[in-house]
Nucleic acid binder design. Structure first.
Lengths: 230, 230
DNA sequence: TACACGATTTGTACGGCGTACACTATGGGC
DNA sequence: GCCCATAGTGTACGCCGTACAAATCGTGTA
């Protein structure tokens, strides 16, 4: 464990002009402005008005910076609702999942980073624990609750992955405009070869919408609820 | 449309020493040997024994190369089972999904490319059409079949995304070794703060296994089957 | 049959990247 | 009041994608 975790009181030498949090802030700003492929040591340094090498005081290398950014963006979603005692298990899971989806859609650059870094941070562990508790409340055995937890995470991450993969710029467009653009693009498909795709064009265009996500998650939770014992 | 699609008969000038397929082969070889971050114009040129600039004859730029690689790897899975008339809808979907998962696990570098490129190729469209047909066979309305198609894709892509994100090297380790390594890493969690996680360690370690994937897909298909009418 | 011209590959070069290394300046511990 | 660990900079190296001009090849046309 080096200094990258917690500055233990006061050190020797000059005072630090930054800290890890400000570096992560700058990285998120870069990501939100330019997209995933614009994040770099040099761009973050420029954002902070500092020479590139200064970044290495706070972060091991670029890969470590990406991991910290992923952890940060995961922590932006409201984890508390997952443990809210007044809500039923379905509401807790649904509200958290929707919130996480919105958070990741708000930072698509950081979201695509998420697909290339393992989710082993403290936030991910906490979320897993709370998801398991919710699914045990649903009546699942501990084993099935653990399996179901994975499935819920898969559903959120998979949906976000498909969504952000086709976002052209650094930000997600408004939902209606996005769906309209997809609708237009889908009108080019071969109606003879892909009749069902052609017929379902409005539904497929709306795959990236929140309603589709709610529908998907609802089907998943139905499938999981059917595994409840007693 | 430029020459990048199909060499129309014979052209002027020297004979081409390569074609797009060989470039994609080389790219896949690079990916399988070194992982996603080693794919580049220069690395595939070296793989082919050619100067980097020659690649640009067959591919617009690096991003285009990545798209073609993604399309190739998607086409490696057996799409035919999805339309097999002798199988029920559940078997068709399950067999295809398992096959696609295996294909992507066999090429984790290409799989992580998949997470950053839109799935709008002909293979993806065909798979969507066949998935919709299968779900209509299950008794879903066309609208629900379209929505369910998205969910099935989400399930496969999400599971693969979580899996390959934590693969350290360029290849996926054997499943039992992988699960064992995860089991060992999970023993470091705080049993007091994360009691359910600690108790379910064997199940969580096996999240990356094919059995967990079958279980997840089963729950999803149950949830979808519950939406059948009549 | 000879030549012109388009297609292909190469040589070279530019700007940008991550980051290693030597250096300067800062300020707490003895 | 000095020592020295530390923060930040200057500089440089080896990569990267790729633009551009030159060389080579071979078909279509004169």
């Amino acid at each position: 464990m080096s200094d990258h975790v917690n500055p233990p009181a006061r050190r020797r030498g000059p005072v630090r002009s930054l800290d890890v949090e400000r570096v992560v802030d700058a990285a998120l700003a870069v990501l939100d402005r330019g997209g995933a492929h614009t994040l770099g040591i040099r761009s973050v340094a420029a954002q902070l008005g500092v020479r590139p090498n200064a970044i290495y005081t706070y972060v091991e290398d670029l890969a470590a910076l990406e991991r910290v950014v992923v952890e940060r963006v995961l922590s932006l979603a409201d984890v508390a609702v997952l443990g809210a005692p007044t809500l039923g298990w379905r509401e807790r899971i649904t509200e958290y999942a929707i919130g996480l989806r919105r958070t990741l859609h708000a930072h698509p650059g950081a979201a695509s980073l998420l697909m290339s870094a393992p989710m082993d941070g403290v936030t991910a562990l906490t979320v897993g624990e709370l998801l398991m508790a919710a699914l045990e409340d649903a009546g699942l055995s501990p084993e099935d609750a653990a399996r179901g937890t994975y499935l819920v995470i898969v559903t959120v991450i998979g949906a976000v992955a498909l969504d952000v993969a086709e976002v052209p710029g650094p930000t997600v467009p408004p939902e209606d405009a996005w769906v309209a653009a997809r609708h237009e693009a889908l009108e080019a498909v071969d109606h003879a070869a892909l009749p069902r795709t052609a017929a379902a064009t409005p539904v497929i265009a709306a795959w990236v919408g929140e309603a589709q996500f709610r529908w998907s998650l609802g089907a998943v939770l139905d499938g999981l609820g059917g595994r409840a014992r007693a």
